[in-house]
Design a protein around this nucleic acid. Structure first.
Lengths: 152, 152
DNA sequence: ATAATTTCTAAACCTCACTTTAGATCAATA
DNA sequence: TATTGATCTAAAGTGAGGTTTAGAAATTAT
């Protein structure tokens, strides 16, 4: 009985909706692995479909590939996440999602407080100093200095 | 009475907490403008402080610079946003913030529904087909194909 | 057997929002 | 005046998450 139910990268792409280049990229990043056939072409076990599915879902929750790799690495090597694994990981997702929602709602409260104000003052406006960085993206420091001597 | 209350880029940086390089970048992107003195150095009117403040707040709400430029362009040329402007724009922000929150809450509902399931099936899992793309970032197509003939 | 398709690698390119670098010029201070 | 400090420009670099390109080799279809 041949174990040869492995699939090519093109088939994997068709099954997951990912681009072939993305799958190669994930492998280069260590998120998935594969065997090679005699000609050097990748042969993926079917379990990789589920791993890729997990990657896509985690990305929808805003996880970086680094973070996803870490989550996957917490599973026994080369195993696809089963239901127990998933429940555990999803519990963590759920907590972070709650935090994200809470952050956005706090931002909304601040915005409501400022909507009739319009001061946009560096010193007084509550919008400048949110503890939670809800929309943080991109690189580079975004610090805030408290230094000014006359009004705008 | 000299109009010479204009400030240098370094002073502007100190007043807003932005890096000098960021301010130059914003100008290159057409978000702000300036005069030049005899030696070719930038001289900013004070109103630019408020424009930059607006930029920082809008960024916290996840707006791209393109989008922010468009909002600022909707104001009379070279005018700094006043309170009426701000209320109008902030109303729009508020709507989008509501939508973001609603999206994340829907995601949480789906996650709750799936937390004990763990199927991660491309065909059946509700997590795969959210109408709202809450955590959409990065480039490239992420489409989903409905094509599979045997189970994972 | 031949043609068409897929896959391979490595490296370059892409967007976004900047920062860093290099070398030159301008302005403020001792 | 001499020197330090701020500013100038253009171009290249950063990081995330990939895509595109180019040329070669393998596989599949006719």
């Amino acid at each position: 009985m041949p174990l040869g139910r492995e699939i090519s990268i093109g088939q994997l792409a068709a099954r997951t909706g990912l681009a072939v280049s993305a799958i190669r990229y994930y492998q280069a990043q260590g998120l998935i692995s594969s065997e090679r056939n005699a000609g050097g072409h990748r042969r993926f076990p079917r379990s990789v479909i589920r791993r890729l599915s997990f990657i896509r879902i985690a990305q929808q929750f805003g996880y970086s590939l680094d973070r996803i790799r870490a989550e996957l690495a917490s599973l026994p090597e080369n195993r696809t996440p089963n239901q127990a694994d998933w429940s555990l990981i999803a519990g963590g997702l759920r907590g972070e999602l709650d935090a994200q929602i809470a952050g956005l709602m706090a931002m909304r409260d601040r915005l409501d407080g400022c909507i009739g104000c319009g001061c946009l003052s560096l010193e007084k406006c509550a919008l400048y100093n949110p503890e939670d960085k809800a929309a943080k993206r991109g690189s580079g420091p975004r610090y805030l200095m408290g230094d000014s001597s006359d009004e705008i």
